[in-house]
Each structure stands twice: as C-alpha cells, then as structure tokens.
Design a protein around this nucleic acid. Structure first.
Lengths: 120, 120
DNA sequence: ATGGCTGTATTATGGCACTGATGCACCCCA
DNA sequence: TGGGGTGCATCAGTGCCATAATACAGCCAT
C-alpha cells in the first residue's frame, strides 16, 4: 500500500530553507566555529549545486538575527555566542511547537518515546 | 531574536496536506468509523473554509491507497480495516523516516526524549 | 594600483504548486 | 421523472521559488 505520509515535513522543501537548516546545524555543531568565516555564497553555491542568490537568501536570515557579521568585500563571520544562542532559540521553538505535535502523533500511533529511546 | 525555524515543521504547509492529516487522524481515532461515509467534499470544504477541490485532492490519496471506497453519486466510505492499516502504515513511516531525524535533532539541541516524557 | 576575491542589488524568466470557478456525470429518493 | 445530493474533470489565475545574466561596491594581497 502506498505510504501515507510521504512527507510529513515537506517533500519539496525550498532549497534556501534546506540550506539554512544545514548551516544552522553546522554552526551549532561547531563545524563553523565562532569567529570563523562562512563559505562564500559562490563557493557554497558551487558545492551544493545551487544558485549563489539562493545561498545568499539562506545567509540573509542569519544576519537578520545577528548571528553572523558581514564584512563587505571580505566575508561573513560567525559572531561570538552564535552557537549557543542558536541552540537555545531552536530548543525553544522545538519544545513549544514541535514536540507537542510529535507527542500527540506518537500517541495516536500507539508509540511511546520511552520505548524508542533504547532503539536508536 | 528572530526564530530560526519559522517553518521547520509546517508553516506554509499546503491546505490539502493539512486536511489529509486531519482526516487520517479522524479515521484512526474512529471519528469516521469503518463503513461510515466521509463528509462530502462540499460539506467539509464549507466547514473548513476551503475549496471543494482542495478537499477532493486530500480525499484522493485515500482512495489511491484503497482506504476509502467511492460510490459515484453517493459518497465515499471508509473500508473495513482502514483504521488499522492506516495506523500501521503511518507508524512504519514515522519510525523509519521521521524518528531518526527527530532524534538527531534533539541530540543537537541537547534534549533527551526520556526527560520530555514526563513533561507533557 | 590592479586583479581577484568578497557580498549585494537589479531585472527578467521559467516552472510548479495551490487555489479557484464552472460545468458535467452519476446516483438516490420522492 | 424531476430535483438535489454525490464525486470529478477542465480551464484559468496567482504567487512563490529558483535560476540566470549583469553590474556594482568594498577589501586585500601581489
């Protein structure tokens, strides 16, 4: 039988959002440490097979949030405390918006988080 | 600070997908018991403030999966065993595709499912 | 100072998903 | 045999996304 939730998240999630999530994860994980320079829009675009403008759109949100600092003509740098602020913000959103839905969904499916902790 | 995941889960989730999830939940929960007729596309559209076609698109997937039976000119009916098949299928997808991502995401955020079981 | 790297602004274009309005085919019941 | 209820097909419109081609402004090492 065909699956029912081919995409509970989003199948056709916009590229610039995927990039944003990926970069955010990299910052939190320390792949791009504080003070380090992010890959240039052109470099990351080439690496990811995307358009430089699309990468710029992903970067845009980070400077809006003050997580990266732009030095025109030089590059974009991860500000101090960015990783922690990012993680705190994500955690906040996760607990408030995502986790309740996940819980009720699991309940409906007859699953219990306690049981799944062991598995993975 | 602006949040990071304005739509990590579903901000702009298409209406027809929201409806599909909602209907699937209703079937699993027995709101629409086996053998019962689903609300007509027009009725549900009016109730949800959506377009009849959008509702039809949501229903479409259920007939593709053989979970509902169509009687032209009459209505759509929930087939026998639909709830259980639906729940099994959803559970399969959840465990295989969603849960791993949730786990790694929680790990990145410094969260542990075991701790959150108590909260909610 | 010049070439090469940064990010950024502008404009245009194609594609695709979502939504909407209308009309048709079908079935049941009075 | 009508009338009102089904689902369904077609066509059109709208908006977002992604791409593209340029061009500009700033910085730096050679």
């Amino acid at each position: 039988m065909a699956l029912m939730h081919p995409m509970s998240a989003h199948p056709n999630r916009p590229v610039y959002l995927k990039l944003r999530d990926q970069i955010a994860a990299a910052i939190i994980d320390g792949v791009y440490p504080e003070g380090a320079m992010l890959p240039s829009v052109r470099a990351l675009a080439a690496e990811q097979g995307a358009n430089p403008l699309t990468v710029a759109k992903a970067y845009q949100q980070f400077q809006n949030d003050g997580l990266v600092e732009v030095q025109r003509g030089v590059g974009m740098y991860v500000v101090r405390g960015a990783a922690e602020r990012l993680r705190a913000a994500e955690r906040e959103v996760f607990l408030r918006e995502e986790w309740p839905e996940i819980r009720s969904r699991m309940a409906r499916l007859g699953l219990d988080p306690a049981d799944l902790v062991i598995i993975s």
